[in-house]
Structure formats: structure tokens, C-alpha cells
Amino acid sequence: MHPAFSVIFFTTASGAGYGMLATLGFYAGHDALPQNVWFSITSMVVALGLVTAGLLSSTFHLGHPERAWRAFSQWRTSWLSREGVAALLAYIPACAFGLAWVFPALEWPARILGPLMIPFALGTLFTTAMIYRSLKTIHAWHNKWVVPCYLVLGPMTGAVFVLALSAGFGVTLKFLAAFSGALLAAGLVVKWLYWTFIDSTSAASTPATATGLSGTGPAVDVKSVEWPHTEANYVMKEMGFAVARKHAQKLRGIAIWLGFMVPAILIESSVMLPLPQLSFLAIPAAVLMAVGIVVERWLFFAQARHVVTLFYGAKSA
């Protein structure tokens, strides 16, 4: 599948934003959020900024962005529509929580609004994952690992971002470094399982089933000898993207090290070593992780093969 920048940015940025909201909500519920006005304002601006920038970015690839509001209407059948509705609803507890946290006079509602925000944030992440999970045409997406990947990677990136901000403002969120490390490990595990799955399996469809010849005899081989067009058409450009596949293994290595391993090592070493000033290591960890996760998401699109390529000579999809 063509890895459109707008969609990669949307899924990574909004994933991190909702992950931050879920992390902050969790700490608020345990009354463990420090009252530092600049930390709270910056955290909320970054979290809601990532969510909003991601949502806006996802409208950039539309043919008619001005009609985007119509996408809220078909939540009965469409996961994309459900995502729009969920994203809109999530603003309500998130904005209310932000106000309650920033203004200490309103401290007690933050303890209720924070946990309330978690299902909205995770629910929106779930709807994003389901957009991909529900597409039967793409084996790399229509499988059981896609939803766990989104539900772990969102909170993982969010927790590391909150950790980096807390380090920047010199405030402490108890156990957040350990919590981030655990999420980075969990993220690597689900992503590894996802990659193992897509490497070892492929779609049930073949060139023979695509052309209706699977029932006409044993081992019918269907070889594409002529395309309907001499130049790439929309279907080929959108669904037949193949540029990155030859670099997939190298890019996976980059994603594994930058997205998971290096941030985990930096964060955990800052905790293990008896130097409190090493907490700043969470900041480079967050930056490197962001790069790694963008590579990971790029691969999620670039490595996804659509069954329509079977008509164009692909042996499997």
C-alpha cells in the first residue's frame, strides 16, 4: 500500500497524543500528577496538539477536505466514521481534564476526569486500528495483531513523551520510567509477533482464485503476460506500492533499535544509575523513539500487500 505521509503522521501523532492522555489520566486517577503549572499546560498542549495535528493531517489526503464533516455520519457501518466520532467525543473529557489539572482550584475533578479520559483515548486508538483490521483485502492488516499493536504503541509513545516532558520540567511521576520501559518491551513483543505473522502467512487468494480458475483443474498456473495499460494507473500507484520491500529487513532493524531498544536502554539506565540528573536522557529517548515509530508505521503501510496485485502478476498477497 502507498505509504501516504499524512496517514503515517496521523496514526503516529494521534497515537502518541491519545497515549499521553491515557498516561496522564492514569496518574491523575491515582492522585500522582505533580502540580506544576508549566508542566501541566505543556503536557496538555502537546497531547491535544498531537491529536489535533494528526486529525487535521488525515484530512489533507482527502480529495475534498471541506466535506470532512460528512465523515461523522456513517458510524453504523464504517470504522473510519466511528473513529471520527470517537475522536470528537474524546475532546470533551480531555479538555475538561486539562482545565481541571491546570487550575489547581479544580483539583478534585481532575481525579475523576483523568480516569474517565482513558476509555475515550484508548477507544479512539481502537477505532483507528479497526479501520485497518477490517480490510479483508490486505492480509498484513486483516489479522489479530493489528489492534494489539495500535493499543500498545499508542500508550507506549505517549508514556515516553510524558516522561520526557516531566524530565524537562524537573518533575517526577513515580514509576513512569519503569512503566515506559515495560510498555517499550510490550511494544517490541507485539510488533515482533506481528512481523513474524505477516512473514510466515499470506492471503488465501491466489492468481487462480482472482481469475476464477481455481476450480477448473489441479495446479492451474495463471501468469500475467499483459497489463491493461502501459503506465501505472491509480490502482497500481495506491495498492501496488513496492519500493520499500527490498529494504524491509534493514528498516525493521532501524525501527526495532530506534523505536524500542535504544529508548528503553536510555530510560532504564537513567533510572539504574545513581545520578538523578540523568533523567534528561528521557528526552533523546523520546526523540529517537518518534523516528523509530515513524519508520515502523511506514513499514506497516509499505509492506502491506493488497489482493488486487494478484491481477497484475503477484503470486501471493
Binding site: P207, T211, L213, T216, G217, P218, A219, V220, D221, V222, K223, S224, V225, E226, W227, P228, H229, N233, F311, Y312
Partner: peptide, 9 residues
Amino acid sequence: RVHTYEVTG
């Protein structure tokens, strides 16, 4: 769109 295939069986 009309494709052309070589079908071997």
C-alpha cells in the same frame, strides 16, 4: 480494464 494471462494447467 482487460488483462491478458497465460494459463498453464
